[in-house]
Design a protein around this nucleic acid. Structure first.
Lengths: 365, 365
DNA sequence: TTGTATGCGTTATCAC
DNA sequence: GTGATAACGCATACAA
């Protein structure tokens, strides 16, 4: 049962032809070269033997493995960025490529080692992706084509696909203002902590915050109408952050006219924490407080009660883009056309659900 | 810059030796065969040229790719089961193996195709893993060694690593009873929906429920002391389920003596929903209601306010086990010793946090 | 239209 | 101790 697979030579012998003929037929180059009868005989023999060309031999011969190395810092273990991985895998499959996944668990010391291994395995290209948007200072040295997803370098010397963080800040400002809100606050996050901190160097928070403030001002809202509070990245941080802006110094709920009527959370987990914090002090969402997040995290945003209005992070787009970009680097003829070094900004999309509404009239300006 | 990598022959030429010598030195078989001086010369030449053996050629030659195929139904996109993938990758790296990840997105029609591709690529073995515990009816046909993780067949003809679901039900019962609870209910989930439903065929819920009830009875709690309510798998389901057991027919909070004092949720998301549901009707956790979940989901269980007490699903253990099992199948000499067909039960571990406490005296028996 | 010969880069066998 | 040489399985230039 566990016998060794058939080779082209076996098929050739069975069909009474040469290996060349077999190779031509199964390689799709039979058209003007092999007689129909011969071809059918070969196909039959191949089917009987369950012959499938050995891709290792093909790879050696063609110097192309049709495999992409996917290096990540913590995507595999992330509860949200896995979408990038999934999307990349799907796109790769469509292109006949396969993904070799290497997750460093934020141990970037191993990156060079990993890249070397990938090179030794002769992957066609490397995709370097991060869980959160960050600048990578030390990219592994390699002669392989390499693209960046969700991260970037100071000099954009490699093709780079990142989310349009500034746009999401602007969009959030517009959304809340159009809904009628005048006192809004953003709960942001910062990249701090030791080198194994998943959020270390994450610049998405500041970027979103800056654009959010700009968006508020562009809509002729006074400077002080909006503020940014650094909370963090988790549910607990959102919870604490919400209480900080909702309560006074003595832990009592602020009067309606002094409270923000809407919160822009740096991500869905912070948004969930904010909703829970609001609930815990007797506020209703969205009647007393509107909340909008960022991510559209699977099984969280859509499942929350009430369901969370949020901006969908383009994880899928980044995954697809990265594979297409790698493909173009390998073979400029295929994929989505030639790719130049430099940043490609992928768009966020608003997912309207139930946590954003007009401000309570009582609390209005 | 993008020149083709050095070959053994290049190193040999530079060191003035034969390719054989190079192969011996870099293959670690130099000891009794190559003079120390020659070896040093070869090593120097290899270093200068940045020579690394071509693993494709090695694979062809040795008929071993040191690659494992990891087939999943939806792990890559799951916000929680990614731990399995991450752990498997880490263990694989330790063993010098690499993971080729194929996620079917619950399109099991493609499984056979995927397995064939993996076979053509000559992976050393296949790991078939699922997001939720389920019976697989149609495993792809392949002559490759194959192990199952988080899923099983009726006839346990393949090595199979699954969580010890019955144990977690028992443990949950003991935990709540020991804390003093006498009126407890489980919010369970069932595998329903169409063939693309991630939870289709998931049997973890029923298994946990059955053992939970058994555990209650074993502790001499009357039959009616515990009941199981089928809620679902998401936050929203937990929210609705909690309200169902906390409110009367008219939507009013049940009297303390009639309410359950503790909830065992089939997973962390249901638990989160239950906590939110309880909060929304003015109950405090854990004072008025204890809640325990299953999963220890990243960035959720530990982040909830209050932090969720839960049983950690052995995703990491399954990932490691699967790679070790595959390794043993490939090469019985290495890995964690020989593996027999049949089920290996991996243990859940209680993570004590803040959502389980003694029942409120007022509500006591 | 078909078959032969060669090379892809490595390791292993066997002479020297 | 060291070096030719033959596989591994496939694809192709070239000869028939």
């Amino acid at each position: 049962m566990n016998q060794r697979p058939a080779r082209a030579a076996d098929v050739a012998a069975r069909a009474g032809v040469s290996v060349t003929a077999v190779s031509f037929v199964l390689g799709g180059k039979a058209d003007g070269n092999i007689a129909a009868a011969t071809r059918d005989r070969i196909l039959a023999a191949a089917a009987e033997l369950g012959y499938r060309p050995n891709r290792v031999a093909q790879s050696l011969r063609a110097n192309r493995t049709h495999a992409l190395g996917l290096m990540t810092d913590g995507i595999a273990s992330s509860p949200f960025a896995g979408r990038l991985l999934a999307a990349a895998g799907r796109r790769a499959a469509e292109l006949g490529q396969v993904l070799i996944v290497h997750d460093s668990h934020f141990d970037t010391e191993r990156d060079q080692h990993t890249a070397d291994d990938l090179a030794a395995r002769r992957v066609d290209a490397i995709i370097y992706a991060t869980m959160g948007l960050r600048r990578v200072d030390a990219l592994p040295t390699t002669s392989l084509p390499l693209v960046l997803a969700n991260c970037f370098q100071d000099e954009d010397v490699r093709p780079t696909g990142i989310p349009d963080e500034e746009s999401v800040g602007r969009q959030a400002a517009h959304l809340l203002i159009e809904a009628g809100h005048r006192r809004v606050v953003m709960l942001s996050g910062q990249g701090v902590g030791d080198s194994h901190d998943p959020y270390r160097g994450n610049v998405a928070g500041p970027l979103r915050a800056k654009a959010f403030l700009t968006g508020l001002r562009a809509c002729e809202i006074a400077r002080r109408a909006g503020e940014v509070v650094v909370a963090g990245w988790g549910i607990r941080d959102g919870h604490a952050g919400a209480l900080r802006v909702l309560l006074d110094g003595n832990g009592r709920l602020l009067a309606a006219r002094d409270r923000p009527t809407a919160i822009f959370a740096v991500n869905d987990r912070v948004a969930v924490g904010a909703v829970m914090g609001a609930m815990s002090v007797g506020l209703c969402v969205p009647e007393d407080l509107s909340v909008v997040g960022v991510d559209d995290q699977e099984e969280l945003a859509d499942q929350l009660v009430p369901a969370l209005t949020t901006f969908r992070l383009p994880h899928v787009e980044m995954g697809v883009w990265a594979v297409d970009a790698a493909q173009s680097l390998i073979d400029p003829g295929r994929g989505a056309g030639p790719v130049e070094p430099g940043r490609t900004l992928l768009p966020f999309h608003l997912v309207r659900r139930a946590t954003v509404g007009p401000p309570n009239p009582v609390a209005g300006t």
